[in-house]
Every structure is written in C-alpha cells, then in structure tokens.
C-alpha cells in the first residue's frame, strides 16, 4: 500500500497581481520503504511538491494522502501532530537550531508532541543515531563549529529521531560539494535499508538522481516520467 499518494494536485501561488501555476495536476504513489528522488530542473516544482507531502503547505486543489490519511480535512493542530509523528525533514541549508549542540538538536523533536519516550531509551536511540551518522566525537558541538557535511548528518539524525515513516529532503546536497553530497545520499540509502524508512529527496544533480530506486522526473509542474528500479509498484496488501 502506498504511504504517500498525490491525486491530481495543483498549486497556484499568488504573485502580485498575477499567479504562478507551480504544480499542474500531479498524480503519483510512493511505497513504504522507497528510496525515491524527485528530479527536475530549477523551478520545475520540486520544493512545492515536497512541501505539500510534508504538510507544511497545502495544495490549491487535489488530494494529498499520508499513511492513508487525507490531509485536507485536518486542522492545523492535527496536521502538526501528523508531521511530528510521520515525517522527518532534511533541509537544503540544514536549518539546525543554532543555540543547541549536536545532541540537543537531534533530541529537539522528542521534546515536542504527546508521546515522549523514556529518558534512557531516548538517550540510547540518540546515541545510536549519532553513531550511525558518524558524529560520535561531535556530540557537544554547536552547529557553527561543524562543516556543511557534518551539519547535514546532524539533520539526518534529527529527521530520524521520532522514528518517522517518511523522511523528506529538499535538495539536501545543494549546499555541499559533490563528494560530500554523494556521501550524504549514500548514508540516507544505508539508513533506508536498515530502518526501512521511506526517503524522498529532490535534486537537480543527475549523478545524485542515479542513486535512487524510484525516480519521478518533473518538468514545468507536471510529471515528465517515472522510473522504478529494483522496485515493484506498491503491493496492495502490504502493511504500512
């Protein structure tokens, strides 16, 4: 069963007296455990689509379904809870909280929401994530003491700390050099395999796109092509 479904989604931004039709009827499904890339040139609508999947923006028309839940009927509070529970975010410019150190940044999402984990359980998992992204020696450093690649590793750990089923990454490598960028995507892929977390990342870099199992190519706000490798379409009876 699909973990993310978009059905004829449109997004129109008002721009002064005119409008920008950024997404023009997009329909696709993403399966649980997918490692998927939304590819396309700048301005093709990648960010807009990721924002709508991440429930930080709403479509002008059409439906976004996350984990079987239709999002357009939810209140802001419910949507925020859904985001907290189901979705992790990785941003192009890292967006770490500058006053918090590595450990605290990763911990931050756990301080929100209703079901807060037990203290030692929490610490164990954060330590596991820090180890997983290779930052054991940096746990008490603040973001401004880290390199770009290291910051993005913190962001990956932070995105994973609530054990979300979906992690969204909007051009996570755009602010990194190509070697570091590839390493980040490889890290995401490793975690995708180990934790079965669904990763959706956007990029306009062709070499990065190739690492994905499932590629949706956008052009000018519509899906130009869709390509699945090593992956079948979502099985209907699969548990989510």
């Amino acid at each position: 069963m699909a973990i993310v479904e978009l059905k004829d989604v449109h997004k129109i931004y008002p721009l002064g007296k005119t409008e920008v039709h950024a997404v023009k009827g997009v329909t696709f499904e993403i399966c649980k455990g997918d490692f998927i890339s939304i590819a396309g040139p700048s301005g093709s609508g990648k960010s807009t689509i990721l924002n709508m999947i991440g429930c930080i923006d709403t479509p002008t028309s059409g439906t976004v379904i996350i984990s079987g839940q239709t999002t357009d009927t939810l209140s802001d509070k419910e949507i925020t809870e859904l985001r907290h529970k189901e979705i992790g975010f990785i941003f192009q410019s890292f967006n770490l909280i500058p006053v918090l150190n590595v450990y605290e940044n990763i911990e931050f999402p756990l301080l929100l929401g209703k079901n807060r984990p037990k203290k030692n359980e929490k610490k164990e998992f954060i330590d596991f994530l820090i180890h997983e992204v290779g930052l054991d020696e940096w746990r008490t450093h603040r973001p401004n003491e880290l390199s770009g690649g290291q910051r993005q590793r913190v962001a990956i750990a932070r995105a994973l700390v609530t054990k979300p089923r979906i992690v969204l990454a909007d051009e996570p490598t755009a602010n990194l050099d190509s070697v570091t960028g590839e390493a980040i995507i490889e890290l995401m892929k490793k975690i995708n395999r180990e934790l079965e977390t669904t990763f959706i990342f956007s990029t306009h870099d062709p070499t990065i796109v190739e690492i994905a199992d499932h590629i949706i190519r956008l052009h000018d706000g519509v899906v130009a092509s869709e390509e699945r490798r090593n992956r079948e379409p979502c099985r209907k009876n699969e548990e989510t």
Partner: peptide
C-alpha cells in the same frame, strides 16, 4: 523549521 519538526 521548528513548525516543520512538529512544534504547535
């Protein structure tokens, strides 16, 4: 960022 991460 905080809102995206789930702060109300």
């Amino acid at each position: 960022t905080m809102r995206a991460l789930g702060i109300q």
